[in-house]
Amino acid sequence: MKSKVLVITSGKGGVGKTTTTANLGTALAMLDKSVVMVDTDIGLRNLDVVLGLENRIVFDIVDVVNGSCKLRQALIKDKRIESLFLLPAAQTKDKNAVTPHQMKNLTNELRKEFDFILVDCPAGIEQGFRNAIAGADSAIVVATPEISSVRDADRIIGLLEAAGLYDTRLIVNRLRSRMVKNGDMLDVDDIIDILSINLLGVVPEDESIVISTNRGEPAVMETSSKAGAAYKKIARRLNGEEVPLFTLEDERILDKFRRLLKIAR
């Protein structure tokens, strides 16, 4: 299998890039793929704590690109899953300590060892973003169903295209089906329509994300987590399987009602 470098990005901060990276990485590794997650959020390292690996860090991405250590030395092996690794961001170094060229070399190096290389991008559209996308084959954009997040996603999709990344797919995160039903939240169709982009998956708003982050165990490891189940589906899709998109059973019934009402009017 040819390895894939996927960058997880969003523009707007705090919409779930790190959560998505951790869960998709873990889920892909649970499908017996070899996976490395690269944290490029230099200065705001977070992927390590979401994964519960914060106590194992010795070297980081800046050490690797500087040649202060070997790539192998900086890779942290997950404690639960055999084929899962993390390359942590530097916490104290300068944001510009890595260049796009170095990132490209790094991801090419990682391609030799891994099926999937997931790059967790920092928020914003500056240097950190440029670095994160430099070695990527394609991008996954995460957005929440809010105007500001979708607007920033649109901008990011444009910037990705300008950088030659055309196969961008969207994950809608933190969807609250009750609010959508009540007409108080943008629904997935609205967002897809406005952004004209392919949908990769939908992740519901779910308290289990908070709980699993507290524990340092991604939600995909918790069998009862709804968000975890959604991420597992997305992982299978990334792995080339055909998995039907998330459709709420009651959404369908609702659609029928709407059609009936239209006729009645």
């Binding site: 105007i147 979708v150 959508v180 009540n182 007409g183 943008l186 406005i194 009402l261």
Partner: peptide, 18 residues
């Protein structure tokens, strides 16, 4: 209103603004 077809629902406002 219940089924979210109301044009003044906050979702529709959001969509148009977006």
């Amino acid at each position: 209103k219940i089924f979210g077809r109301d044009n003044s629902s906050s979702k529709n406002i959001a969509r148009e603004r977006l």
